[in-house]
Each structure stands twice: as C-alpha cells, then as structure tokens.
C-alpha cells in the first residue's frame, strides 16, 4: 500500500497544527493507513509536496486557491470522528480502493 504524505497546516506550523497532526495520526493508525503526517505553516504549505492537506475552516479559504491537492477543513481538531468522516472517502480514492 502506498504511504500517504499528509500535511496538517496552521498559522505557524508549531501549535494547533501539531495538535491536529496527533489526532490525524491516531485516526490513520486506527484505520490502518500508512501515512506520514507533517505540520506546516500556511505560507509554506502550498509548496510542500503532499497527498492531502488538513487545516482549519479559517485557513481553508486562504489555502484552497493555492493548492491542487485535496484540502480538508476540520472544525474540531480534537474530533476523531470528524477527521475520519471527512478524510477517509478521499484517502480511499487516492489509494484506489
């Protein structure tokens, strides 16, 4: 199975994106998806090579015109169900399942 590269994006790539990353990690592990989740700040996010980007509702609007890869907005960074529900259909599509 292909290993996904996932980006968690916040304003500076150190605080909330780190929290988001941890929750994405948990979801990926629970779903049995091989993924490498990294954090990035909003300025560099569009230039980082990845399969999928997670970010907040506010940053979603600023990112969506800059990236061509799937972008997922997460309202509650701590909510595994929200993360899982929004990303799994897209991940299955990427993995061709």
């Amino acid at each position: 199975m292909k290993k996904l590269k996932i980006l968690a994006v916040c304003g500076f790539g150190v605080g909330s994106s780190m929290l988001l990353k941890m929750n994405i990690d948990d979801v990926m592990q629970a779903q049995g998806i091989r993924a490498e989740v990294e954090t990035a700040d909003i300025m560099t996010a569009s230039s980082v090579n990845a399969d999928l980007i997670f970010t907040s509702k506010e940053l979603y609007g600023q990112l969506k015109d800059k990236v061509t890869i799937p972008l997922i907005e997460i309202l509650n960074f701590m909510d595994h169900k929200e993360i899982e529900g929004k990303c799994m259909p897209i991940i299955r599509e990427i993995l061709g399942q």
């Binding site: 304003g11 609007g61 309202l75």
Partner: peptide, 16 residues
C-alpha cells in the same frame, strides 16, 4: 489568519 486557533468547541489555543 482568522480565528483558526479555536481548535474545538469552547477552546482557543493561542500561539504565534
């Protein structure tokens, strides 16, 4: 950047 630091209901995680 907007109030993106409100990472979940009722919780703000302010940082720079």
């Amino acid at each position: 950047l907007g109030p993106y630091i409100v990472i979940m209901p009722h919780v703000a995680f302010a940082h720079a």
